[in-house]
């Protein structure tokens, strides 16, 4: 039997949609875990209030922080984040369904196709969510 070639060697030896999905799930998972911590950190700006005892100070700091996200780069990151969330969420639900309801191979394949379609729909529908980078629809 051929030996496994490590993290990327496994991918090369098992180059099929399911295995690619497994890697994509992990990559998006790590990205989203990093984002959760950044998200919680960035929201802390409103607590600046505690230092000056004036609630408006914290709110101004918070608005300034949110304003920094309101740029082209910020919206592109938001767009990629949306796609990562959609893939991770629907693929994760697929795994939950497989674990708990013992789905057939065919049902699994159909669900996987549905996940990819959902990602494609969200990618195409981006102008609705992010008119700032893709231009307004209509």
């Amino acid at each position: 039997m051929r030996q496994s070639g490590g993290f990327f060697g496994d991918l090369r030896l098992n180059l099929n949609p399911g295995h690619l999905g497994y890697y994509a799930m992990r990559l998006t998972g790590i990205a989203l875990a990093v984002y959760v911590f950044a998200h919680i950190y960035s929201l802390h700006f409103v607590t600046e209030t505690a230092k000056t005892n004036n609630p408006w100070d914290g709110i101004n700091a918070w608005n300034k922080m949110v304003g920094a996200y309101d740029s082209v780069i910020g919206h592109v990151i938001e767009y990629l984040l949306l796609l990562a969330v959609v893939f991770h969420m629907f693929n994760g639900l697929r795994l939950v369904f497989i674990d708990w309801f013992e789905l057939s191979k065919r049902a699994n394949r159909m669900l996987y196709l549905t996940v990819l379609c959902m990602v494609a729909v969200c990618a195409i529908a981006a102008p609705v969510f992010f008119p700032e980078i893709f231009g307004r629809v209509g």
Binding site: T47, T49, I59
Partner: peptide, 20 residues
């Protein structure tokens, strides 16, 4: 620690929102 700091931030948001 993250959950504790997150709850602190959330409580502060709620407090500031009620103040306003």
């Amino acid at each position: 620690l993250t959950v504790a700091s997150g709850i602190y931030v959330l409580a502060h948001h709620v407090q500031a929102a009620q103040y306003l």
